[in-house]
Amino acid sequence: MLTGKQKRFLRSEAHHLDPIFQVGKGGVNEAMLVQIGEALEKRELVKISILQNNEDGKHEVAKHLAEGTKAELVQLIGHTVVLYKVSVNNKRIDLP
């Protein structure tokens, strides 16, 4: 579980990132979760965009992404989700 200070730090780190995944009409599926998990292992911090044609609520999508990848939900702002997961092999971010 992340503290408020750690979430603030991660939000500032994620500010300049571009979304690397999009959740569309099909919603969240198993293949997407595997790919996002691999990206989290490489980068530790990823942004995901939820498209307007998504049929699920954005809060449900964010929760499903976080649980499916076993990552921490850092932020849900607008239709953008920021996830963080500590990398086993590629540790880059040192939390305060």
Rank of each mutant, 00 (worst) to 15 (best):
D94R: 10
Q75K: 10
I93P: 06
L95K: 01
L17P: 06
E13S: 05
G68D: 02
N89K: 13
V28E: 01
E72F: 10
D18H: 12
T3N: 12
L76M: 10
E72Q: 14
L83P: 03
Q75V: 09
H15Q: 15
P19C: 11
H64T: 15
I36E: 00
K7N: 06
R11P: 05
E30Y: 05
S87D: 06
G37W: 00
G27Q: 01
V82D: 07
K5N: 10
M32R: 00
H79D: 15
L95Y: 04
M1Q: 10
P96C: 08
V82R: 01
N54L: 09
L17A: 10
M32W: 02
R43W: 01
N89W: 07
V46W: 00
I48D: 01
V34S: 03
E38T: 00
K91Q: 13
F9M: 12
E44G: 03
T3R: 11
E67V: 13
G78C: 07
K42V: 00
K63W: 08
I36G: 02
L17H: 06
L10P: 04
G26Y: 04
A31C: 00
I20A: 11
Q6W: 09
G26Q: 10
S49K: 13
L83C: 05
K58E: 11
G37Y: 02
G78M: 04
A62G: 05
V86S: 09
R8P: 02
G37S: 15
E55L: 13
M32D: 06
I93W: 05
K91S: 12
Y84C: 10
M32G: 07
N89H: 12
L73R: 04
F21S: 03
G4A: 13
S49R: 15
P96M: 05
A66S: 15
T80Q: 13
E60T: 14
Q52Y: 12
G78R: 03
T69Q: 07
H59N: 12
H15F: 15
I77D: 14
V82A: 08
L2A: 01
Q22R: 14
F9C: 11
G78H: 05
L45P: 05
H16N: 15
I48T: 03
M32T: 04
L40Y: 00
N53A: 10
L65M: 12
T69I: 09
G27C: 06
L33M: 02
N29H: 10
Y84F: 15
E67P: 01
G37C: 02
G27A: 08
L95S: 04
V46K: 05
Q22C: 09
L51C: 04
E60L: 14
R92Y: 02
H64D: 13
L73A: 10
E55H: 09
V34C: 00
P96F: 08
V23Y: 00
M1V: 08
N90K: 11
H16Q: 14
A31I: 02
G57C: 03
G26V: 04
V46C: 07
K7A: 13
V34T: 05
A66F: 01
K58L: 10
I77M: 13
T80I: 15
H16K: 14
L73V: 07
E13R: 15
L73G: 06
Q52S: 12
E30F: 07
M32C: 01
T80C: 14
V88N: 11
H64L: 14
Q52M: 12
D56Y: 07
L2S: 05
K5L: 13
E72L: 11
E44W: 00
E38W: 03
H59M: 12
Q35D: 14
H64S: 13
